[in-house]
Amino acid sequence: MTSTPMPAPTPSTPVTPPSQAPTDAGFQTGPLVDPAQAKVPGGTMIAIDAISKWYGDFQVLTNCTTKVSKGEVVVVCGPSGSGKSTLIKCVNALEPFQKGQITVADTKVMDKATNLPKLRSRVGMVFQHFELFPHLSITENLTIAQRKVLGRPKEDAQKRGLDLLARVGLSAHANKYPGQLSGGQQQRVAIARALAMNPIVMLFDEPTSALDPEMVGEVLDVMVELARDGMTMMVVTHEMGFARKVADRVIFMDRGEIVEDAKKEDFFGQPRSERAQQFLSKILQH
């Protein structure tokens, strides 16, 4: 994985007005993360407490426990079918689980009293296949949830959406439709769409797996920048370069269990489990 090194963003630089932003001209300076949202590292953002999940008789998650602190970037990796996508989808209850509990910003996910739409609106999610809404223009994709879920006035939503579109370098495409953009561009829009909701945490479910190799870099660049801006992130990915660069911790999963949960340095230096060592030797060979 090669991604171009990025200068550290300077929060004081004003965001370029979208109308003047150049076409797909890389990234503008300025924070992707709302400074008010960039939490001081410390407290727990996501606490996953002994969750288990079954599809019928088949157990996909077994007693998974971990936590993500505010401002922390956690990469989840593992062979396919290891349950990592399922785990991340449990965090905002896209997948229900039968045992254990997940707490996001002190709110219990599996609790009848929890207003799930409200909780989800504060948890940004980026999918493997982008999942932009194909019948809506890029601008509408960026604004619809702000307006219908958060109740923002149209002008405010549009300003926020177009600011973020400029930040991912796609201002010129505001009036196009998802089907007219490349995969990498669509994924950058999808990230901007999630950020438009001012999320307190971002979940990425294999965000680069469906991309052509030459587009992986542009998406990872946005994610690296996001991490450096202090966003709390949980990222399911095979991009070990990304993990090395910005992750604080790496979780390794296999057959529905968290096998390794270690600081990045420890994970890449000396994984304790044999399975993680095998996995790493396989994917780092190439």
Binding site: K89, N92, L94, P117, K118, R120, S121, R122, V123, M125, F127, Q128, H129, E131, L132, F133, P134, H135, I144, A145, K148, V149, L150, R193, A194, M197
Partner: peptide
């Protein structure tokens, strides 16, 4: 429709009704 569309709508905080109204039905009718 791809299953992810419903998930994306849900993940953005849409209620079930909103997901159908703004995401699923406009595409399904097409």
């Amino acid at each position: 429709l791809p299953r992810g569309q419903k998930m994306a709508g849900t993940a953005m905080g849409f209620t079930v009704a909103q997901t159908y109204r703004y995401v699923i039905l406009p595409n399904a009718y097409r």
